[in-house]
Simulated scan of single mutants.
Amino acid sequence: MENVKKSLQLFIEYLQIEKNYSQYTIVHYEQAIEDFILFMNQQLLLHFSDITYSDVRLYLTELYNQQFARRTVARKISSLRSFFQFLLREKLIIDNPFSLVSLPKKDQTIPHFLYKEELEKLFEASDRSTSTGQRDQALLEILYATGIRVSECCQIQLQDIDFSLGTILVHGKGNKQRYVPFGSYADHALHEYISNGRKQLMEKSTLRTNHLFLNFRGGSLTTRGVRHILNNIIKRASSTIHISPHVLRHTFATHLLNEGADMRSVQELLGHKNLSSTQIYTHVTKDHLRYIYMSSHPRA
């Protein structure tokens, strides 16, 4: 299996150097391939060149027997298809057996979002007289004001913020950059946090960083830290709602579309590569319209 591991390492280097994928994305590719290698071991298949279409069909059956969601199966097969295409390009195999497999249709799940009343409870939960409270408020305001991903939020540097224009330079997937505007509430929360709370948090560490959001020790905030902060905000708000950082992104997009924003603009703000990724929010807005109709029409 030495050649198998070497091929995987070559592919990882290709994703890092040529494709410039994020570490998060690369981990998903690597996990999908390693899972398939385990399957190969069970089937006594020693080389990637030994894999046939029949083996791929058998592997698909195993994934379904393990009751993986269709979205998960589609992601695994897509990763393996890309991997085998790379092997084909490098002339390590003579054909790509995964090219014959059609991806299962993904479950059409409607993104969960928050209503304005629910948001207000969250915005009133932080104690802004403390350094962490000012940070939490600024974090919440930025996530809702911009709709950026948590990973993008954790990467924000002080120099990325332009208060005169009210924009943040966001470093997205694949090192793609975009400017995202923010409003007056986020502006006020940022000024308060940077002028006071952030300085107090910085004093707790001997290290110096330009990252905007810091943890209670004065270090850079991680995605896991953001989730912990949001969970604490919910507890303080005495709320029964379920919230994740991505729910704020869903809420941002839904509220914009509900208020008449065009989909292309929302796509650009979210940093979506394809419009189809943004179109899922039209299902949410239709659900919202039905809710308004049913609660407002005299003969609904």
Results as ranks from 00 to 15, higher is better:
residue 169 L to S: 09
residue 155 Q to Y: 01
residue 160 D to V: 10
residue 189 A to D: 01
residue 187 D to T: 03
residue 151 S to N: 14
residue 178 R to A: 06
residue 200 Q to W: 02
residue 198 R to I: 12
residue 154 C to I: 13
residue 166 G to S: 08
residue 187 D to N: 11
residue 167 T to N: 10
residue 214 L to G: 05
residue 215 N to V: 06
residue 171 H to Y: 07
residue 152 E to F: 08
residue 187 D to F: 02
residue 165 L to I: 10
residue 170 V to N: 03
residue 186 A to R: 00
residue 152 E to K: 09
residue 155 Q to D: 15
residue 203 E to K: 10
residue 196 N to E: 14
residue 170 V to S: 04
residue 149 R to D: 08
residue 153 C to M: 14
residue 213 F to A: 02
residue 217 R to W: 08
residue 188 H to W: 03
residue 214 L to Q: 07
residue 211 H to V: 09
residue 177 Q to W: 10
residue 162 D to P: 03
residue 209 T to V: 13
residue 173 K to D: 06
residue 187 D to R: 09
residue 184 S to Y: 00
residue 217 R to F: 12
residue 200 Q to L: 14
residue 161 I to V: 10
residue 167 T to Q: 07
residue 167 T to C: 07
residue 151 S to W: 06
residue 209 T to I: 13
residue 184 S to C: 00
residue 168 I to K: 03
residue 217 R to C: 10
residue 192 E to T: 15
residue 162 D to Q: 09
residue 178 R to S: 06
residue 213 F to M: 04
residue 178 R to N: 06
residue 199 K to Y: 08
residue 175 N to M: 07
residue 186 A to I: 00
residue 191 H to V: 05
residue 191 H to F: 05
residue 155 Q to L: 13
residue 196 N to L: 15
residue 156 I to A: 01
residue 156 I to R: 00
residue 208 R to M: 11
residue 167 T to K: 03
residue 201 L to R: 06
residue 196 N to G: 12
residue 199 K to H: 10
residue 217 R to Q: 15
